[in-house]
Amino acid sequence: MRLLLLFAALLAGCAATPPAQTPPPQGSAPVEAAPPASLGVPAAPAAAAPNPAVERLMASARADVAASRLGSAEATLERALRIAPRDASLWQQLARVRLQQGQYQQAESLAARSNTWAGGDNALRAENWNLIAQARDARGDSEGARAAQQNAERYNR
């Protein structure tokens, strides 16, 4: 029995290993020509080196939101997204601003956009699903909101 448990543990260990061993992101590496060829270059991780320009704009957008200057926050976040279009947290911020502006459809799409760039950041994903739930709720789609809320909880675990 103990042996069996040990074996199971080993297997579990093996099963757990592959995700950690997936090839490193090929952000800049060319697609290999030698077989097996690989399509679909995985994304550069969301948590790339922080860009001071983006950080400055992000801070400015936060200040705008705090002062209820939503139009200004929106413009600043769009400016930041032109510099770092793959920054999941920028998309999320913009989704949040749209939610506050009452543009629920946009908020939902932007949060979904953020999810596509979220990589392994489960907290960010959970928050995106939260935003989607709020947006759906505000639109009167309570069933959709519940489903989104469940997704949020799944990532929060």
Binding site: Q26, S28, P36, S38, G40, V41, A43, A44, A118, G119
Partner: peptide, 16 residues
Amino acid sequence: EPVAFPQPEDIEQATI
């Protein structure tokens, strides 16, 4: 810049 689509969670790769 390379096309960098993040692989969705429900996608896996197989050698064909």
